[in-house]
Amino acid sequence: MAKAEITGPIEGEVQVVAFKLRDEEYGFDILNVKEIKGLTDITRVPFASDFIKGVINLRGSVLPVIDLKRRLGLLDTPYTSDTRIVIVKSEDIEVGMIVDAVTEVITLDTEHIEATKTVSAGERSQFIRGIGKMDDRLIIMLNLDEIVGVSDEIK
């Protein structure tokens, strides 16, 4: 289910929640996005990985929040009124992602998404699933499983 990131409800199309980190535009498959929330009180969690900003209360359950910029190795910017927490679900892990602003939900042609291999692979390439093109915009599709990656980062 969660693997179905490239296939959308319509064959050949994928709906993407697009959002901004600094000046770049990124996207999560809409199927992974549960809701978008304004910034709320975040409780710092000692001993957690540095990219984990803390935990929030989402309707009574406690949810970890990842600072996506820090996770992707981007420079910090202060929070603004546009800052949002995107609640996503990968496998059975639910987590919030702090983004600078949510722009819109767009429909991308799967043909217009280039796999990362052809794109120059940088340090954070494991987090990137592909790059989608729409008109003159570039949307970096993120690999949620890797970003949440319970594997080695935690502990």
């Binding site: 000692p46 001993f47 935990v55 406690v62």
Partner: peptide, 19 residues
């Protein structure tokens, strides 16, 4: 008592959270 979830499992000193 609420758990911190899988992502934060095994954290030392912190056993859980509450709202």
């Amino acid at each position: 008592i609420k758990t911190l979830g899988k992502l934060l499992a095994g954290l030392k000193v912190i056993s859980g959270a509450t709202v």
